[in-house]
Design a protein around this nucleic acid. Structure first.
Lengths: 145, 145
DNA sequence: AACATATTGGATAATTTTATCCGAAATATA
DNA sequence: TATATTTCGGATAAAATTATCCAATATGTT
């Protein structure tokens, strides 16, 4: 469902939020280690998330990645779109150029229903909210925190 | 949602069924051309579908791929599983080793719902049924038939 | 000012996925 | 039997994704 890069992105962002809620900035190195992802690859993904302003970053000692109220309205769909584009959300799932309500592919109407659930999954909670659930111990991100 | 190979596989199988319902066997070459897929790559995918007995094949002149009543109970989920394995249907969507009802990742319960819809999409109609819809003109596979 | 820490960005490498090529095996037909 | 057609299977190539490395930039600390 998700590319490897998107999986890392999702885990990274939620992890950043868990730490930001306790006022800690985190380095790409720490993030990679905590979420079990290659550090340099994670850094590349974080660059894109930062460029998209989904998280913030500060260079230098005591710098790192963080999220604050200015990032509080982003959700997982935003993250997925930045990393993988929107293939998951639009376009014919079989790759047909012409596929529509009027001229549907064999999967068209079922895909609409699947995408509705995917949308709910990725938009009903903010990234911050997901981090709060992790902090509360209701969900988890790996071995971590 | 689907790999390129799976998209080709789905289109191939439905196309084969549309032709088999009119008693025509089809070559890998014809299939590739009709569904807009590279012929040699399509042939490779068809090998796997044939090995899995989702379709039949006969070598030589007037040979080709076909489907008959012995193949009538297969659905798209069978096809997806053969080509892409079952990542779409099982395992943690974030790649966590330990993820369960008791110890869920942040997406766990939402993923269950998404997968329920995916299952419905891929199992509620047989491949033959999907081909009938194409023949009736209710759905389509591209420029084709 | 010097140094250490961290992100940024570009180049490169490894792996996986997608795609191509070709010869061997099977089989229908002339 | 010879020939043409078609799948089968292995080898190879191209492209995309995943991953690594290193130098440049920014910035806090001593």
């Amino acid at each position: 469902m998700f590319s490897q890069a998107t999986k890392y992105a999702i885990k990274s962002v939620i992890y950043i939020w868990t730490q930001s809620l306790e006022d800690r900035k985190v380095s790409a190195k720490e993030i990679g280690q905590k979420i079990g992802a290659p550090e340099a690859f994670t850094a590349k993904i974080l660059q894109n998330l930062t460029k998209a302003k989904i998280v913030g970053s500060i260079k230098g000692p005591n710098g790192g990645f963080f999220a604050d109220e200015s990032h509080a309205n982003f959700n997982l769909k935003d993250v997925v779109k930045i990393v993988d584009g929107d293939q998951l959300f639009s376009g014919c799932s079989l790759g047909l150029h012409k596929c529509s309500e009027k001229n549907p592919c064999p999967l068209h109407f079922e895909v609409v229903k699947v995408r509705k659930e995917i949308d709910i999954m990725l938009t009903s909670k903010s990234l911050k909210h997901l981090a709060v659930e992790v902090i509360k111990g209701q969900t988890h991100l790996g071995n971590i925190i």
